[in-house]
Design a protein around this nucleic acid. Structure first.
Length: 265
DNA sequence: GTCCATGTTCTTTA
DNA sequence: CTAAAGAACATGGA
């Protein structure tokens, strides 16, 4: 559920609740969601204040008053919400953090599949540049170095960090580029177009609060609405919004890929 | 029971 | 070295 727009919206909705907050108590119900394994998260968090929250790729990065940082990754089904402590906890709530300022409330991390987690580290060596600020030149430089099909290349977090299956498909459709094109055979013109499409799609998705297909909600528990504006993702068999031919789907790089054969070449 | 899922990482294979 | 393909992780919905 969470790609860049969803994570950004979580950060935006979380910020007013937690920046300046002091951490009162920490409850970790499952040790195995914390990396590195065995790390004393309670000890590291208790009594600290949260100075800032930001996003890097699909990570929600916390800055504490002692200068230390950690991040939460939502994986596939993760939720990070702020709620009153007396509201019953849903299943698979692995971590709760009680805060007292600005108001008494509780941060909850819930994640049924547990692909996400809490990472006490800040290694960015596996992350490429941010899609919202990457220059066309840099995208050209990175894409022409790989022969992989463009669909797979854009999912590679080391090449560009933050896109996932939804936004790769939507961006390729927006740019009119076929997902099976070889990255190194795209013209600088096409990559420039792709660069603009990625930014346009992501910005629209952020404004819509992200795509809520199943689990994703923001820090206030609200769903996004960008799923209503998807033009190819999840629409295989339906009519293309541009040319009315049928949207097809095919597995590429291990992921279902939806596209229009007529509009994307 | 089957298949599929917004993610990441590791292994195998070529 | 590159990259494709597959599996693994774990849970739940259709």
């Amino acid at each position: 559920m969470p790609e860049l727009p969803e994570v950004q919206h979580v950060v935006d909705t979380l910020r007013p609740h937690v920046v300046g907050a002091r951490i009162d108590s920490v409850r970790l119900n499952r040790r195995d969601i914390v990396q590195p394994a065995g790390f004393n998260l309670r000890g590291a968090l208790s009594g600290k204040s949260i100075i800032d929250i930001s996003r890097r790729a699909k990570r929600i990065v916390f800055l504490l008053d002692n200068g230390q940082t950690f991040y939460i990754h939502l994986g596939m089904t993760g939720r990070l919400v702020v709620i009153q402590p007396d509201v019953p906890k849903p299943r698979h709530t692995h971590l709760t953090i009680d805060i007292d300022r600005p108001v008494i409330s509780q941060i909850r991390f819930t994640d049924p599949r547990r692909f996400g987690g809490v990472f006490w580290m800040n290694d960015e060596s596996s992350l490429g540049p941010e899609p919202l600020t990457i220059s066309p030149r840099e995208l050209v430089q990175r894409l022409t170095k790989t022969k992989r099909v463009i669909k797979s290349a854009l999912l590679d977090q080391k090449l560009i960090a933050g896109l996932g299956n939804i936004y790769v498909d939507e961006s390729l459709f927006d740019a009119g580029i076929h997902p099976e094109r070889n990255s190194n055979e795209l013209s600088p013109d096409e990559i420039g177009r792709l660069c603009r499409s990625i930014k346009r799609v992501l910005k629209k998705a952020i404004v819509s609060g992200g795509s809520s297909l199943r689990d994703y909600v923001d820090a206030n528990g609200n769903r996004g609405s960008f799923q209503k504006l998807h033009r190819v993702y999840g629409r295989s068999g339906e009519a293309c919004v541009k040319c009315r031919s049928t949207i097809v789907s095919k597995v590429l790089g291990g992921r279902t890929t939806a596209f229009c054969e007529k509009c994307q070449s």
